[in-house]
Amino acid sequence: MMGPEMPIGRFEDLAEIYGGEIARWPEGEREAARALLAAHPERLSPRLANAAQLDRLLDLAPAQSVDAALLGRLIAAAPQASGAARRWIAGLGAALGLSAAAFAGVLVGVSLAGHAQPAAVAPVVTAQIAMGRADSPITAVDVSTDLQDALEEGSEL
């Protein structure tokens, strides 16, 4: 079903406002615009082509590639599965002279044996192992800290 007819002036305005691709115009006006274009191609096609020239120039405005260091900082600062539990593991493991990963392994064993332990620890350790990161450095970054705090905290562990 055809929508309301579009005045030629509105078509020309839309090309100037939204550019040369009707697909990027307001959804509710596209159908009428296409119908109008089909009826007056010789007049309206050049308007679209003209607007598309500016679109192509705009596409040249540089974006920016994501720097690996930025990505790394953001991953390090992201919420982690129970930061408190990670700190607890790292701290207690260090006190016992074990690496964090080794101590995490001990905790898994204890957990599987059904002995009591802090409730939050098992999921964290399980997650570490599931991620294949049981031997990676444990970083304790709380979600509420800002990046600086997070990085400082991480470097202390």
Binding site: L70, L74, I75, P79, A81, M131
Partner: peptide, 27 residues
């Protein structure tokens, strides 16, 4: 997933949205 501390969700969300936000800020 990010809220639960799922690293794969963090990575996926960054892959999807960080380039857009970076481009927005750059422009």
């Amino acid at each position: 997933g990010v809220g639960r501390g799922d690293p794969s969700a963090v990575r996926a969300l960054l892959d999807r949205r960080l380039p857009r936000i970076l481009a927005l800020a750059r422009r």
